[in-house]
Amino acid sequence: MPHQVSVFSENKPGKIERITGALAKKSINIRAITISDSGDYGIIKLLLDKPEEGAECLKEEGIAATLKEIVAIRIKDRPGGLFDAASLLRQNSINVEDAYGFMIHSHEDAVFVFQVQNAKTTEKLLADSGFTVITDKELYLL
């Protein structure tokens, strides 16, 4: 099961610098980053090549960071590529709480990363329906 690192952050200049600085010092690579904010504060979500190590090094810096289970699937980089997966989730009443996507350099495939209530059953459902679910090891090495 892949994990992202979710970081609590005040909505102020210098916060991303502090987090990315701590990761850079430990040679941890960021695959994707997204921020959801709620006014004064927000949560910075980081897809890292070494999430456990990343979360640990942020905690050592006194930053509130936690590992969060995610589901990642590989989809075709073409119109309607995400539609099939979204339909399957809707048919099974699975709510996507938070999501982001990114392209893989070949421009053939894209990756869709999202948070749901029950990641394990969602992964199984997608795999059983023929989607390419990305394992943690694959995801971190993309």
Binding site: F8, S36, K59, A64, L67
Partner: peptide, 15 residues
């Protein structure tokens, strides 16, 4: 201040 050990990465929880 937020208590780090009670942070679960969820914005809704914080609100």
């Amino acid at each position: 201040e937020l208590n780090s050990s009670m942070f679960h990465g969820d914005l809704k929880e914080l609100d």
